[in-house]
Structure formats: C-alpha cells, structure tokens
Simulated scan of single mutants.
Amino acid sequence: MWRKTSLQSVGMPLILAGFLNALIMRVAQGSATMADTTAAWLVASAVSAFGD
C-alpha cells in the first residue's frame, strides 16, 4: 500500500531536503566534508526508500 512520507506531505523536494540537511550539519559540525558526507548518506537512503 502506498503512503505519503513526511517530505511528500509537506511538499518538499528531495534535493531541497538534502541541501537543508547539509546546511544544518555544516553549521552544527563546522566541517564541510562531514556535513556533505552525512547529507549524501541520508539522501541516498531516502532515494532508495522512494524507489521501493
């Protein structure tokens, strides 16, 4: 059965969610490399979940 995810329910595109996640992680951690890696990992898991 198909159900909406939280990103779909607020109408936020996945690329915007990834950017905001990287931005928040960058401010919180101070490291651009770790922020990008963490955001990429989270976006990759979200993309694979949307594919199912």
Rank of each mutant, 00 (worst) to 15 (best):
R3P: 01
K4A: 09
T5E: 07
T5H: 03
T5G: 15
S6T: 05
S6M: 05
S6R: 08
S9I: 10
S9D: 07
V10E: 07
V10G: 00
V10P: 00
V10L: 08
G11L: 04
M12V: 12
P13D: 14
L14K: 03
L14I: 14
I15W: 11
I15N: 12
L16W: 03
L16N: 10
A17S: 10
A17C: 05
A17N: 05
A17E: 06
F19D: 01
L20F: 15
L20V: 01
N21G: 08
L23K: 09
I24P: 02
M25R: 11
R26M: 08
A28S: 10
A28P: 00
Q29E: 11
Q29T: 15
G30E: 06
S31L: 08
S31T: 09
A32K: 06
M34D: 14
M34G: 15
D36P: 01
T37D: 14
T37E: 14
A39T: 14
A39K: 02
A40I: 13
A40T: 15
A40G: 10
A40Y: 09
W41A: 09
L42W: 08
V43Q: 00
S45F: 08
A46I: 01
V47C: 08
V47M: 13
S48V: 06
S48W: 12
S48D: 08
S48Y: 13
S48I: 08
A49L: 07
A49F: 03
F50D: 12
G51K: 13
G51D: 08
D52N: 04
